[in-house]
Protein backbone atom coordinates (compact mmCIF):
# COMPACT_ATOMS: atom_id res chain seq x y z
CA UNK A 1 0.00 0.00 0.00
CA UNK A 2 1.20 3.49 -0.80
CA UNK A 3 2.27 5.08 2.48
CA UNK A 4 3.09 8.71 2.95
CA UNK A 5 5.87 9.94 5.20
CA UNK A 6 5.66 13.19 7.07
CA UNK A 7 7.91 15.74 8.70
CA UNK A 8 7.31 19.08 10.37
CA UNK A 9 10.73 20.73 10.36
CA UNK A 10 11.27 23.84 12.45
CA UNK A 11 14.05 25.26 10.37
CA UNK A 12 14.51 26.04 6.74
CA UNK A 13 17.70 24.02 6.75
CA UNK A 14 15.88 20.87 7.85
CA UNK A 15 13.26 21.33 5.17
CA UNK A 16 15.89 21.80 2.49
CA UNK A 17 17.70 18.68 3.59
CA UNK A 18 14.55 16.64 3.18
CA UNK A 19 13.98 18.08 -0.28
CA UNK A 20 17.54 17.29 -1.22
CA UNK A 21 17.11 13.70 -0.19
CA UNK A 22 13.65 13.05 -1.62
CA UNK A 23 13.48 15.52 -4.51
CA UNK A 24 10.29 15.36 -6.56
CA UNK A 25 8.73 12.81 -4.23
CA UNK A 26 8.49 15.41 -1.48
CA UNK A 27 6.00 18.27 -1.37
CA UNK A 28 5.79 21.23 0.96
CA UNK A 29 2.50 21.37 2.83
CA UNK A 30 1.17 24.84 3.53
CA UNK A 31 -2.60 25.11 3.91
CA UNK A 32 -3.08 21.69 2.36
CA UNK A 33 -6.32 22.60 0.64
CA UNK A 34 -4.98 21.39 -2.70
CA UNK A 35 -2.21 19.02 -1.66
CA UNK A 36 -4.21 16.88 0.77
CA UNK A 37 -6.92 16.27 -1.83
CA UNK A 38 -4.35 15.55 -4.55
CA UNK A 39 -2.41 13.15 -2.34
CA UNK A 40 -5.60 11.45 -1.14
CA UNK A 41 -7.01 10.83 -4.61
CA UNK A 42 -3.65 10.00 -6.13
CA UNK A 43 -3.92 12.96 -8.50
CA UNK A 44 -0.42 13.95 -7.40
CA UNK A 45 2.05 11.28 -6.40
CA UNK A 46 3.50 12.25 -3.05
CA UNK A 47 5.78 10.18 -0.84
CA UNK A 48 6.90 12.78 1.67
CA UNK A 49 4.87 15.64 3.01
CA UNK A 50 6.91 18.42 4.58
CA UNK A 51 4.79 20.67 6.73
CA UNK A 52 6.09 24.19 6.25
CA UNK A 53 3.94 25.82 8.90
CA UNK A 54 6.43 25.35 11.73
CA UNK A 55 9.19 27.17 9.83
CA UNK A 56 9.12 30.81 11.00
CA UNK A 57 10.22 32.29 7.66
CA UNK A 58 7.32 30.59 5.88
CA UNK A 59 4.82 32.05 8.36
CA UNK A 60 6.27 35.56 8.25
CA UNK A 61 3.95 38.39 7.21
CA UNK A 62 5.17 41.98 7.32
CA UNK A 63 4.55 45.30 5.67
CA UNK A 64 6.93 48.20 5.70
CA UNK A 65 6.29 51.29 3.57
CA UNK A 66 9.92 51.31 2.50
CA UNK A 67 10.27 47.63 1.65
CA UNK A 68 6.76 46.63 0.75
CA UNK A 69 4.93 43.48 1.70
CA UNK A 70 6.50 40.15 2.48
CA UNK A 71 4.23 37.09 2.59
CA UNK A 72 5.75 33.87 3.87
CA UNK A 73 4.85 31.00 1.59
CA UNK A 74 2.63 29.27 4.15
CA UNK A 75 0.77 32.33 5.49
CA UNK A 76 -2.96 31.64 5.24
CA UNK A 77 -5.21 33.97 3.26
CA UNK A 78 -7.12 35.12 6.31
CA UNK A 79 -4.04 36.70 7.89
CA UNK A 80 -3.71 38.95 4.86
CA UNK A 81 -7.24 40.30 4.74
CA UNK A 82 -7.54 40.48 8.52
CA UNK A 83 -4.61 42.91 8.60
CA UNK A 84 -6.19 46.34 8.10
CA UNK A 85 -3.01 47.99 6.89
CA UNK A 86 -2.26 45.30 4.31
CA UNK A 87 -5.87 45.27 3.11
CA UNK A 88 -5.79 49.03 2.68
CA UNK A 89 -2.44 49.09 0.90
CA UNK A 90 -3.13 46.05 -1.30
CA UNK A 91 -6.87 45.98 -1.97
CA UNK A 92 -6.41 43.98 -5.16
CA UNK A 93 -4.71 41.24 -3.19
CA UNK A 94 -7.38 41.41 -0.49
CA UNK A 95 -10.00 41.00 -3.26
CA UNK A 96 -8.38 37.76 -4.30
CA UNK A 97 -7.55 36.16 -0.96
CA UNK A 98 -11.00 36.82 0.45
CA UNK A 99 -12.70 34.79 -2.29
CA UNK A 100 -10.47 31.72 -2.36
CA UNK A 101 -12.90 29.06 -1.15
CA UNK A 102 -15.07 29.72 1.88
CA UNK A 103 -14.08 30.81 5.38
CA UNK A 104 -12.82 27.34 6.30
CA UNK A 105 -10.53 27.28 3.26
CA UNK A 106 -9.23 30.81 3.86
CA UNK A 107 -8.15 29.87 7.35
CA UNK A 108 -5.69 27.39 5.86
CA UNK A 109 -5.02 28.08 2.18
CA UNK A 110 -1.94 30.17 1.49
CA UNK A 111 -0.99 32.50 -1.33
CA UNK A 112 2.30 30.65 -1.65
CA UNK A 113 0.48 27.35 -2.00
CA UNK A 114 -1.93 28.88 -4.49
CA UNK A 115 1.09 29.86 -6.59
CA UNK A 116 2.98 26.57 -6.20
CA UNK A 117 -0.11 24.53 -7.07
CA UNK A 118 0.20 26.32 -10.43
CA UNK A 119 -3.42 26.11 -11.43
CA UNK A 120 -4.15 28.46 -14.32
CA UNK A 121 -7.29 29.47 -12.42
CA UNK A 122 -5.52 30.47 -9.17
CA UNK A 123 -7.20 33.60 -7.89
CA UNK A 124 -4.27 35.18 -6.10
CA UNK A 125 -1.79 34.97 -8.97
CA UNK A 126 -3.17 37.67 -11.31
CA UNK A 127 -3.37 40.00 -8.32
CA UNK A 128 0.26 39.23 -7.42
CA UNK A 129 1.33 39.90 -11.01
CA UNK A 130 -0.58 43.17 -11.05
CA UNK A 131 1.36 44.18 -7.93
CA UNK A 132 4.73 43.26 -9.54
CA UNK A 133 5.25 40.54 -6.97
CA UNK A 134 8.40 38.46 -6.98
CA UNK A 135 8.86 34.99 -5.60
CA UNK A 136 11.84 34.33 -3.34
CA UNK A 137 13.04 30.80 -3.90
CA UNK A 138 15.56 29.05 -1.69
CA UNK A 139 17.58 25.99 -2.44
CA UNK A 140 20.89 24.36 -1.59
CA UNK A 141 22.70 26.89 -3.77
CA UNK A 142 21.09 29.84 -2.02
CA UNK A 143 18.29 32.20 -2.89
CA UNK A 144 16.95 33.45 -6.18
CA UNK A 145 14.14 35.76 -7.13
CA UNK A 146 11.63 35.17 -9.92
CA UNK A 147 8.86 37.52 -11.05
CA UNK A 148 5.54 35.83 -10.32
CA UNK A 149 4.49 36.00 -13.97
CA UNK A 150 7.36 33.66 -14.79
CA UNK A 151 6.81 31.27 -11.87
CA UNK A 152 4.25 28.89 -13.41
CA UNK A 153 5.34 27.01 -16.50
CA UNK A 154 2.41 24.68 -17.23
CA UNK A 155 -0.66 23.41 -15.37
CA UNK A 156 0.69 22.09 -12.07
CA UNK A 157 4.31 22.93 -12.95
CA UNK A 158 6.58 25.73 -11.79
CA UNK A 159 10.17 26.93 -12.03
CA UNK A 160 10.92 25.39 -8.63
CA UNK A 161 13.71 22.86 -8.75
CA UNK A 162 13.21 19.56 -6.97
CA UNK A 163 15.47 20.68 -4.15
CA UNK A 164 14.02 24.19 -3.89
CA UNK A 165 11.12 25.68 -2.05
CA UNK A 166 9.19 28.91 -2.22
CA UNK A 167 10.20 30.97 0.79
CA UNK A 168 8.10 34.09 0.37
CA UNK A 169 6.46 36.54 -1.95
CA UNK A 170 7.46 40.14 -2.08
CA UNK A 171 5.17 42.93 -3.26
CA UNK A 172 6.66 46.42 -3.62
CA UNK A 173 4.82 49.28 -1.98
CA UNK A 174 2.29 50.61 -4.49
CA UNK A 175 3.22 54.09 -5.69
CA UNK A 176 1.01 57.05 -4.78
CA UNK A 177 -2.20 57.51 -6.78
CA UNK A 178 -2.36 53.85 -7.65
CA UNK A 179 -5.13 51.32 -7.34
CA UNK A 180 -5.63 47.67 -8.06
CA UNK A 181 -8.44 45.15 -8.20
CA UNK A 182 -9.07 41.49 -8.79
CA UNK A 183 -12.37 40.33 -10.25
CA UNK A 184 -13.34 36.84 -11.15
CA UNK A 185 -16.37 35.33 -12.75
CA UNK A 186 -17.98 32.22 -11.30
CA UNK A 187 -21.43 30.76 -11.90
CA UNK A 188 -22.33 30.76 -8.20
CA UNK A 189 -21.45 33.52 -5.75
CA UNK A 190 -18.87 31.50 -3.79
CA UNK A 191 -17.04 28.17 -3.68
CA UNK A 192 -16.33 27.98 -7.42
CA UNK A 193 -13.12 27.95 -9.41
CA UNK A 194 -12.74 31.01 -11.63
CA UNK A 195 -14.16 30.70 -15.11
CA UNK A 196 -12.11 33.85 -15.73
CA UNK A 197 -10.14 36.05 -13.36
CA UNK A 198 -8.62 39.46 -14.01
CA UNK A 199 -6.11 41.28 -11.83
CA UNK A 200 -5.19 44.86 -12.69
CA UNK A 201 -3.24 47.71 -11.20
CA UNK A 202 -2.89 51.23 -12.47
CA UNK A 203 -1.11 54.39 -11.39
CA UNK A 204 -2.11 57.96 -12.18
CA UNK A 205 0.20 60.91 -12.55
CA UNK A 206 -0.53 64.23 -10.88
CA UNK A 207 -2.69 65.28 -13.82
CA UNK A 208 -4.79 62.16 -13.54
CA UNK A 209 -3.33 60.52 -16.64
CA UNK A 210 -2.44 56.86 -16.37
CA UNK A 211 1.30 56.52 -15.96
CA UNK A 212 1.36 52.75 -15.88
CA UNK A 213 -0.86 49.72 -15.62
CA UNK A 214 -0.56 45.94 -15.38
CA UNK A 215 -3.13 43.37 -16.35
CA UNK A 216 -3.02 39.63 -15.68
CA UNK A 217 -5.60 36.92 -16.33
CA UNK A 218 -6.66 33.64 -14.75
CA UNK A 219 -8.16 30.55 -16.39
CA UNK A 220 -7.61 31.58 -20.00
CA UNK A 221 -4.23 29.95 -20.71
CA UNK A 222 -2.20 26.99 -19.41
CA UNK A 223 -0.70 29.31 -16.80
CA UNK A 224 -1.76 32.58 -15.21
CA UNK A 225 -1.34 35.01 -18.07
CA UNK A 226 0.39 38.38 -17.83
CA UNK A 227 -0.65 40.65 -20.71
CA UNK A 228 1.89 43.50 -20.61
CA UNK A 229 0.66 45.04 -23.86
CA UNK A 230 -2.80 45.52 -22.39
CA UNK A 231 -1.46 47.51 -19.44
CA UNK A 232 1.07 49.34 -21.62
CA UNK A 233 -1.71 50.49 -23.92
CA UNK A 234 -3.02 52.59 -21.04
CA UNK A 235 0.24 54.37 -20.24
CA UNK A 236 -0.07 58.01 -21.18
CA UNK A 237 -3.83 57.72 -21.72
CA UNK A 238 -6.61 59.34 -19.80
CA UNK A 239 -8.61 56.78 -17.80
CA UNK A 240 -11.67 56.81 -20.04
CA UNK A 241 -14.19 54.25 -21.05
CA UNK A 242 -12.56 54.19 -24.45
CA UNK A 243 -9.04 53.53 -23.20
CA UNK A 244 -10.33 50.86 -20.83
CA UNK A 245 -12.22 49.19 -23.65
CA UNK A 246 -9.11 49.21 -25.79
CA UNK A 247 -7.05 47.59 -23.02
CA UNK A 248 -9.83 45.09 -22.43
CA UNK A 249 -9.85 44.20 -26.11
CA UNK A 250 -6.09 43.60 -26.05
CA UNK A 251 -6.47 41.37 -23.00
CA UNK A 252 -9.27 39.51 -24.71
CA UNK A 253 -7.21 38.98 -27.85
CA UNK A 254 -4.28 37.73 -25.77
CA UNK A 255 -6.37 35.16 -23.94
CA UNK A 256 -6.38 31.63 -25.29
CA UNK A 257 -8.88 29.69 -23.22
CA UNK A 258 -10.15 26.16 -23.73
CA UNK A 259 -13.58 24.60 -23.44
CA UNK A 260 -13.96 22.70 -20.21
CA UNK A 261 -16.54 22.01 -17.53
CA UNK A 262 -16.09 25.50 -16.13
CA UNK A 263 -16.59 27.50 -19.28
CA UNK A 264 -16.56 27.79 -23.04
CA UNK A 265 -13.94 29.51 -25.17
CA UNK A 266 -16.50 32.02 -26.38
CA UNK A 267 -17.84 32.92 -22.94
CA UNK A 268 -14.38 33.12 -21.43
CA UNK A 269 -13.01 35.45 -24.08
CA UNK A 270 -16.08 37.61 -23.74
CA UNK A 271 -15.68 37.67 -19.95
CA UNK A 272 -12.03 38.70 -20.20
CA UNK A 273 -13.21 41.85 -21.97
CA UNK A 274 -16.00 42.59 -19.51
CA UNK A 275 -14.00 41.84 -16.37
CA UNK A 276 -10.87 43.71 -17.51
CA UNK A 277 -12.93 46.84 -18.07
CA UNK A 278 -14.74 46.44 -14.75
CA UNK A 279 -11.52 45.73 -12.86
CA UNK A 280 -9.90 48.81 -14.38
CA UNK A 281 -12.87 50.90 -13.30
CA UNK A 282 -12.59 49.61 -9.77
CA UNK A 283 -8.82 50.12 -9.70
CA UNK A 284 -9.29 53.66 -10.97
CA UNK A 285 -11.76 54.41 -8.22
CA UNK A 286 -9.25 53.12 -5.68
CA UNK A 287 -6.39 55.08 -7.25
CA UNK A 288 -8.42 58.25 -6.97
CA UNK A 289 -9.34 57.48 -3.35
CA UNK A 290 -5.70 56.71 -2.57
CA UNK A 291 -4.95 60.26 -3.75
Amino acid sequence: MHAIQYAAPRTLQDALEILQEYGAKARILAGGTDLIVQAGTGARSVDVIVDGKRIPELMHLAFDPADGLTIGAAVPCCRIYEDPQISRRYPGLADAVSIIGGMAIQGRASVGGNLCNASPAADSVPALIAYRATALIVGPKGEREVPVERFCTAPGRTVLGEDELLLSLHLPTPPPRSGAAYLRFIPRNEMDIAEVGVGVSLTLDEQGTISGARIALAAVAPTPLFVPEAGDSLAGSAPTEESFRRAAQIARDASRPINDIRGTIEHRKHLVGVLTRRALERALERARQAG
Binding site: P187, R188, N189, E190, M191, D192, I193, I261, R262
Partner: peptide, 10 residues
Protein backbone atom coordinates in the same frame (compact mmCIF):
# COMPACT_ATOMS: atom_id res chain seq x y z
CA UNK B 1 -16.98 21.80 -6.56
CA UNK B 2 -18.22 21.46 -10.12
CA UNK B 3 -21.70 20.05 -9.56
CA UNK B 4 -22.80 23.45 -8.38
CA UNK B 5 -25.54 23.35 -5.79
CA UNK B 6 -26.66 26.67 -4.34
CA UNK B 7 -24.74 28.05 -1.37
CA UNK B 8 -26.16 30.39 1.26
CA UNK B 9 -24.96 33.30 -0.89
CA UNK B 10 -26.93 32.21 -3.94
Amino acid sequence: LDYRMPTALD
